[in-house]
Amino acid sequence: MLKSSLLLAALLLPFCAANADEYKTDDLIVSNPWSQELPPNAPTVAAYFVIHNKGKYPDRLLSVDTPVAAKAELHEHVMQGDLMKMQRVPSVAVPAGGDLTFAPMAYHVMLLDLKDRSLLRDGQHFPLTLNFEKAGPVNVEVLVQKQPPMAGHEHMHAQ
């Protein structure tokens, strides 16, 4: 019984590590990277995640790269009069000891000029590199889903 339990644990360990939804660097943790499944003929898609800064100093997300798109831009939604507008931002501050949520209708990564649409289907993963001013590059795997994950972080984001 003990042997089979140890064998099962040994077999599950790589599976759990491969499906981790947190990516850590010194003071930063990037959790739950996801993107919604690409609708047919959609020219762009967005990626979302949460950045937790456990450190005493702020950091700044400067840029994002991915092989599935020619361009990856940092964007935010803002109200202009009665209209909600999406606009590009040059970088995003990550507060010390705080969280920054990239979510629909908030900050997000916009992927433009898509290259590999096969990775943008439900259940697939694609790589995304977040380039921070202090922490440097953080590589994550974005899970593509038909439906957004359970609500909870969607409307929170730091300014």
Rank of each mutant, 00 (worst) to 15 (best):
Leu2Ala: 09
Leu2Cys: 06
Lys3Gln: 13
Lys3Met: 15
Ser5Arg: 15
Leu6Tyr: 14
Leu7Pro: 10
Leu7Ile: 14
Ala9Arg: 07
Ala10Cys: 10
Leu11Phe: 02
Leu11Cys: 07
Leu13Phe: 13
Phe15Lys: 13
Ala18Cys: 02
Asn19Thr: 09
Asn19Ala: 03
Asp21Asn: 04
Glu22Met: 11
Thr25Met: 11
Thr25Leu: 11
Asp26Ala: 15
Asp26Trp: 09
Ile29Trp: 11
Ile29Asp: 06
Ser31Gln: 13
Ser31Tyr: 12
Pro33Leu: 09
Pro33Thr: 12
Trp34Tyr: 12
Glu37Ser: 09
Pro40Arg: 10
Asn41Tyr: 14
Ala42Glu: 11
Pro43Asp: 09
Pro43Ala: 12
Val45Ala: 00
Ala46Gln: 05
Tyr48Ile: 03
Phe49Arg: 09
Phe49Glu: 01
Val50Gln: 06
Val50Gly: 08
Ile51Arg: 02
His52Leu: 07
Asn53Ala: 04
Lys54Ser: 13
Lys54His: 11
Gly55Cys: 02
Gly55Arg: 02
Gly55Ala: 08
Gly55Lys: 03
Gly55Asn: 00
Tyr57Met: 15
Pro58Asp: 08
Pro58Gln: 11
Asp59Gly: 09
Arg60Asn: 12
Leu61Gly: 03
Leu61Cys: 05
Leu62Tyr: 04
Ser63Glu: 04
Val64Glu: 00
Asp65Val: 12
Thr66Gln: 01
Pro67Asn: 00
Ala69Leu: 05
Ala70Thr: 12
Lys71His: 13
Ala72Gln: 01
Glu73Gln: 11
Glu73Tyr: 14
Glu73Asn: 06
Glu73Phe: 13
Glu73Arg: 12
His75Thr: 13
Glu76Phe: 13
Glu76Asp: 15
Gly81Thr: 01
Met84Asp: 05
Lys85Gln: 10
Lys85Asp: 03
Met86Gly: 01
Met86Phe: 06
Gln87Arg: 06
Arg88Gln: 06
Pro90Lys: 01
Pro90Trp: 04
Ser91Gly: 01
Ala93Ile: 05
Val94Ile: 07
Pro95Trp: 00
Gly98Cys: 01
Asp99Val: 08
Leu100Met: 01
Leu100Ile: 05
Leu100Gly: 08
Thr101Pro: 06
Phe102Leu: 01
Phe102Glu: 01
Ala103Pro: 00
Pro104Lys: 10
Met105Thr: 04
Met105Asp: 08
Tyr107Gly: 02
His108Lys: 07
Met110Trp: 10
Leu111Ile: 03
Leu112Val: 13
Leu112Ile: 15
Asp113Gly: 09
Leu114Cys: 02
Leu114Lys: 06
Lys115Phe: 04
Arg117Gln: 07
Leu120Cys: 04
Leu120Trp: 02
Asp122Thr: 13
Gly123Asn: 09
Gln124Trp: 10
His125Arg: 12
Phe126Ala: 00
Pro127Gly: 08
Pro127Lys: 03
Pro127Phe: 04
Leu128Tyr: 00
Leu128Pro: 02
Leu130His: 04
Ala135Asp: 01
Gly136Arg: 05
Gly136His: 05
Pro137Asp: 04
Val138Asp: 08
Val138Ala: 06
Val140Leu: 11
Glu141Lys: 14
Glu141Ile: 10
Val142Glu: 06
Val142His: 04
Leu143Arg: 07
Val144Ala: 03
Val144Arg: 01
Gln145Glu: 10
Lys146Phe: 12
Pro149Gly: 07
Pro149Val: 05
Ala151Pro: 09
His153Gln: 14
His153Gly: 14
His155Cys: 09
His155Asn: 11
Met156Phe: 14
His157Tyr: 10
His157Asp: 07
Ala158Trp: 05
Gln159His: 15
Gln159Ala: 12
